[in-house]
């Protein structure tokens, strides 16, 4: 914000407007990108430990948002407590899902596990359609100030700001967890080689359960933030499980840092395309297409994504 204020004070008139327009787009890009990164985090966590792409991630994102709403509005629990509780509930929910459906698939081909996650998405869809959340629209009660934070003509809402802060806290926490904690290192070891990990006493099933559970926790956080921005509509919320796939692929499927960088890149591309390209030269909707074009170009150069590990298998 200080940087923005500094630049803007150096400008005047039209240049000021142009600069504030530019910085507004940068801020929006970073905000959107951070939320993408948070939504993508769960996918990365599951992939990092089990090499499985979880196609039910969007449903868990939606479930997290709905649980927070139900606790806040129907059970009258303060929203901050509801937010933490929903993360704990989705932590347990995702752990249970892994325990019931996926544990028995350890050692089976990855494609089988992926197919189970697709089936799981259908089951979760069905369960959510049994509740009012499946077919009705809701919005969180206002719990942040309605007035946005304004810095030199650049605005950011409290929801967006809190979303970015939560994203970076969670991502920082998970990065530390994987790098420094014994359990985190065990998870990385399982990801590298399940049999080698077992031979040194690591509980592979336990690691898988924990990976799913932490992914559930981060999905709930993402769901609450997205739900606060878009409103609580099941179709919209669960679609973010798929929307963020390009982010995960661009960042490298197993890299948390990659998810953050790729999320922000995607967010910035979308916003800059929307701000400077769309509506000019007969172009429209480039914000939707351009990230995929850039994704393809980057993957041509770096097939494992920006931060993905290039594995060499010796036989």
């Amino acid at each position: 914000m200080k940087i923005i204020r500094f630049f803007l004070t150096k400008c005047s008139g039209d240049r000021y407007i142009a600069m504030s327009y530019f910085f507004q787009i940068v801020i929006s890009g970073v905000v959107v990108g951070s939320i993408y990164a948070l939504a993508a985090l769960g996918l990365v966590l599951v992939y990092k430990s089990s090499r499985v792409a979880n196609f039910a991630h969007g449903q868990i994102i939606a479930a997290g948002a709905f649980i927070t709403y139900a606790l806040t509005v129907w059970a009258s629990i303060p929203v901050y407590i509801s937010f933490v509780l929903s993360m704990l509930i989705t932590f347990c929910l995702a752990w249970s899902v892994e325990r019931i459906f996926l544990r028995r698939l350890i050692g089976e081909p990855i494609i089988s596990v992926i197919m189970v996650t697709i089936g799981l998405a259908s089951i979760l869809d069905g369960l959510i359609y049994l509740t009012p959340f499946g077919t009705e629209n809701f919005s969180f009660p206002s719990f942040f100030p309605q007035e946005p934070i304004m810095v030199g003509g650049v605005s950011i809402s409290w929801t967006q700001l809190v979303g970015v802060i939560i994203t970076f806290i969670l991502i920082g926490g998970f990065s530390w967890f994987f790098k420094k904690s014994t359990v985190g290192i065990s998870m990385r070891a399982v990801s590298d080689d399940q049999f080698a990990s077992m031979s040194v006493g690591i509980s592979v099933p336990g690691v898988f359960g924990l990976a799913w559970a932490t992914a559930g926790l981060s999905a709930a956080a993402a769901g609450c933030i997205i739900g606060n921005i878009t409103g609580l509509n099941f179709d919209t919320l669960h679609s973010f499980g798929i929307v963020v796939f390009p982010v995960v692929i661009l960042g490298g499927l197993d890299s948390i840092l990659g998810a953050v960088v790729a999320g922000i890149i995607m967010g910035l591309i979308q916003q800059f395309a929307g701000g400077y390209i769309d509506g000019n030269w007969g172009l429209n909707g480039t914000g939707e297409v351009l990230p995929y074009i850039i994704l393809l170009i980057i993957l041509l150069i770096k097939p494992h994504g920006l931060f993905g590990i290039h594995e060499i298998e010796r036989v």
């Binding site: 507004q24 787009i25 929006s28 921005i229 929307v243 701000g275 769309d278 909707g285």
Partner: peptide, 17 residues
Amino acid sequence: EVVEHGKDLDNTAMLQR
């Protein structure tokens, strides 16, 4: 302008345009 929307989390750029 005719704007075809996507799954946007933030329409700031479009609105400012």
